[in-house]
Design a protein around this nucleic acid. Structure first.
Length: 420
RNA sequence: GGAGGGGUGGCCGAGCGGUUGAAGGCGAUGGUCUUGAAAACCAUUGAGCCCCUAAAGGGUUCCGUGAGUUCGAAUCUCACCCCCUCCGCCA
């Protein structure tokens, strides 16, 4: 009944400059939490009394004595208990729901800022490809080569969908296989093929609900289409207590991802950049709290390796406080160079959520040395967004005569060295 | 969609409305024994909240979830969820 994973509210939203209201929320929560403790205490005391009386009644009955006095008294206790229970449920409900709306606290190394302008560039890999002709964007390239069809996609589905044909379809598949092989064979991840639909509880666990419901597609049966494999992967261990020696756990999964993209009207309307459905290979780690920042570096490097092996020019930025996601304590974005846009665009987002998701989803580990179970730290990152990788390949490796050179490492997967 | 069966601790599996956090078994951990191992034997073996503490300890909750009956519920009633079997339908 009172078995809830109620974290101590005072620290839940600490240091989140983007959410000024969180202080107010915290104040209210402290009051609620105090009340919860009072009620719990009275409840426990009365229950102790009740348990004691229960034994007495039993003995009185055995020896044939009168029990009406004590039973009448216990009747009062019972009704008071009901009152307490009702109020306690109410308080816990309020506490829980206000807590679910508070974003994660930010790591001290996260730069303070308002928008993506304020993100900090950490490093740049490779050089801008130079062209002795005017490079085209992937939409033009794809249509000219006859491998991407947006018009027919609109006919059968709508805007923000694409049909891949021939070489594009094959390239997408080659990329998925290449990424999965790299992460399972070289980077030590275990491959998972999860459900592409999940329930509400899973979405609360990773932080999509209750605040961001409008981003999700919901089925009439009540399931939600996943917006990222992070959701099924992270929730795999919800309400479990892992062994310390099992950590870290590293998982990789290919899944399609579905996003409603509500509120992004007018943004990236052309092309593959922002779709309702796209493919992604996702990395997720469950880490010991003391090692999670090491793990974040490792995970980011694992994702970078994909870009490096493909020979794609990219940079790494640390998201500022205004640009970082709800659940993350720190996030590195990998941004790939798109000559067609003359800009770096996000292709992977690698985050340490610390214990934010672990608390919501109830993912803990039992310390080897003994003591209470502790929350793990969860991390996730794209490794990589497949569609955007395909865009980068089309745009960075386009040739003067209009074809596309396939990176060496992909050639065996793709079954050829160029698209023409 | 129709009919039936079931949800108890890490697992299997008992459980009369009142010392049942829950018999028994398995597993795991520690110990005794042993040259070592096995066997045998002994002990330990869940989580949440609260109080107290140097440590220890104590109270309370949790037998799918929620509500109800009762002085008292794992045990009775209702609703919901999940799993299994059979039939139908379908990839």
């Amino acid at each position: 009944m009172s078995q809830r994973l109620i974290p101590s509210p005072p620290t839940a939203g600490e240091g989140s400059p983007r959410d000024i209201s969180s202080r107010k929320v915290k104040f209210g929560m402290n009051i609620l939490d105090t009340r919860r403790k009072e009620l719990q205490h009275e409840y426990d005391t009365l229950r102790a009394k009740q348990n004691q009386a229960s034994k007495e009644i039993q003995e009185l009955k055995k020896s044939g004595k009168d029990t009406s006095t004590i039973i009448a008294e216990m009747g009062k206790v019972a009704s008071r208990l009901k009152e307490i229970q009702a109020e306690r449920n109410e308080v816990e409900e309020k506490l829980k729901s206000s807590q679910l709306d508070i974003p994660n606290k930010r790591h001290p190394s996260v730069p303070v800022g308002k928008s993506s302008e304020d993100n900090r560039v950490e490093r740049i890999f490779g050089k801008k490809p130079e062209f002795d002709f005017k490079p085209q964007d992937h939409v033009a390239l794809g249509e000219k080569l006859g491998i991407l069809d947006f018009e027919r996609a609109a006919k059968i589905a709508g805007s923000r969908f694409a049909v891949y044909k021939g070489a594009a379809a094959k390239l997408e598949r080659a990329l998925i296989n290449f990424m999965l092989d790299l992460h399972t064979q070289e980077n030590g991840y275990t491959e998972i093929l999860p459900p592409f639909m999940v329930n509400e509880k899973a979405l609360i666990g990773t932080g999509q609900l209750p605040k961001f419901e409008e981003d999700m597609f919901k089925t009439t049966a009540g399931y939600y289409l996943i917006s990222t494999a992070e959701i099924p992967l992270t929730n795999l261990f919800q309400n479990e207590i892992l062994k310390e020696e099992e950590l870290p756990i590293s998982l990789v999964a290919y899944t399609p991802c579905f996003r409603a993209e509500a509120g992004s009207y007018g943004k990236d309307v052309k092309g593959l950049i922002r779709q309702h459905q796209f493919n992604k290979v996702e990395l997720v780690k469950f880490s010991h709290p003391e090692k999670s920042y090491e793990a974040l570096e490792k995970l980011t490097n694992d994702a970078e390796k994909v870009l490096q092996k493909l020979g794609l020019h990219y940079r790494v930025v640390t998201l500022c406080s205004g640009d970082i996601g709800f659940a993350a304590a720190k996030t590195y974005d990998l941004e790939v160079w798109l000559p067609g846009q003359n800009a770096f665009r996000e292709i992977s987002s690698c985050s340490n959520c610390e214990d934010f998701q672990a608390r919501r989803a109830g993912i803990r580990f039992k310390p080897k040395a003994g003591g209470k179970p502790q929350f793990v730290h969860t991390l996730n990152g794209s490794g990589l967004a497949v569609g955007r990788t395909l865009i980068a390949i089309l745009e960075q490796f386009q040739q003067k005569e209009g074809g596309i050179a396939i990176p060496k490492i992909l050639q065996s997967y793709f079954g050829g060295d160029r698209i023409s």
